[in-house]
């Protein structure tokens, strides 16, 4: 993003491939992320989507919010299904049954589908190197089934299966670092994004689609329902997550790290945590633990970015 001096919203594709009228909650940043992603990908796209919020809200057949070929599959399988789509289309094009054309093969899933149950098929698809993009919409819990913890739920968050109370401080394990797991597969492109930074997100998704081979984009999607915040604050909390370096925006191109956004002033994590109902029970000591972990992780990313220069 820093290589472009001017970003004008007028230059963004005006067509909507993920239309309005779907059933997402008020202030859903995940639906916004899908909208931006589909703007970036355009119409020549096949989407395989795991069960989850975005699938449920967008496809109450016969109604659908999708203007592209879209296939729904069981929770764990979107990476495997899109692998099949890609292989199938390749064969059809080779035989001349379908004309040669650049088509984006995109698998989408939530954090549960990606970091928990679908990890195996995802790893397989990345290893095989299909020409596909995997997009993880990370709202940090199983929101569709009623806010159960996932391995992407951050330390200290209260969910219905990691409830905070007298005997428990909520989620007591650290968030699984999916982008780093994707990087470890040595794929051409890995990026983190957030719909609070739409131009950055659109550019990254475009890059991911254009890069030959497998690409992985991890999108932090604020969920007002599950995070216990006001719907109008979804964009604000996305910004706070990035400005407090809880979720740094970076991309890894062929193994080289690049920070795509540097906060003007790094905020303390309390700015991000306060106001979120899922963190309201945290003590100063626990917040300090979170701050230390965020600082350590951010330093790691900075160091890797410097190495790349």
């Amino acid at each position: 993003m820093d290589r472009f001096s001017v970003f004008s919203s007028r230059l963004v594709d005006k067509s909507e491939n993920f239309t309005s009228g779907h059933r997402a909650c008020q202030g859903c940043a995940e639906a916004l992320a899908v909208r931006h992603v589909m703007k970036a990908l355009g119409r020549d796209t096949i989407v395989a989507m795991s069960t989850g919020c975005m699938e449920i809200i967008s496809s109450p057949l016969p109604l659908t919010a999708w203007k592209v070929p879209w296939i729904h599959n069981a929770f764990e399988n979107s990476a495997a299904v899109i692998s099949g789509c890609e292989a199938g289309m390749k064969a059809m094009m080779r035989k001349g049954i379908i004309p040669q054309k650049k088509i984006n093969f995109v698998a989408m899933g939530g954090d549960g589908a990606t970091a928990d149950i679908g990890m195996g098929p995802l790893s397989g698809a990345l290893e095989r190197g299909h020409d596909m993009v995997y997009i993880c919409y990370d709202n940090e819990a199983y929101m569709n089934t009623g806010i159960q913890r996932s391995s992407s739920t951050p330390f200290g968050a209260s969910t219905t299966t990691s409830p905070a109370g007298k005997d428990s401080m909520g989620q007591h394990t650290q968030k699984k670092n999916m982008p780093q797991i994707a990087v470890a597969h040595d794929i051409p492109y890995v990026a983190t994004a957030c719909p609070s930074f739409p131009f950055d997100l659109i550019e990254k998704v475009k890059k991911a689609a254009e890069m030959p081979g497998a690409a992985y984009v991890h999108i932090l999607s604020v969920c007002p329902t599950g995070w216990r915040i006001q719907p109008q604050d979804a964009i604000k909390y996305g910004r706070l997550a990035i400005d407090s370096c809880v979720f740094p925006l970076y991309e890894v191109v062929n193994g080289e790290y690049r920070l795509t956004y540097t906060p003007y002033r790094k905020l303390p994590v309390t700015e991000y945590l306060k106001g979120q109902g899922r963190f309201r029970h945290l003590t100063d000591k626990e917040i300090q633990l979170i701050q230390d972990k965020v600082d350590r992780d951010y330093q790691k990313i900075l160091k890797r970015c410097e190495e790349g220069r």
């Binding site: 549960g112 089934t145 009623g146 159960q148 219905t160 299966t161 990691s162 409830p163």
Partner: peptide, 13 residues
């Protein structure tokens, strides 16, 4: 998690 049995893990947690 899977609906409609989520109340069981929630209760058990």
């Amino acid at each position: 998690p899977i609906t409609p049995q989520n109340e069981i893990p929630e209760y058990m947690s």
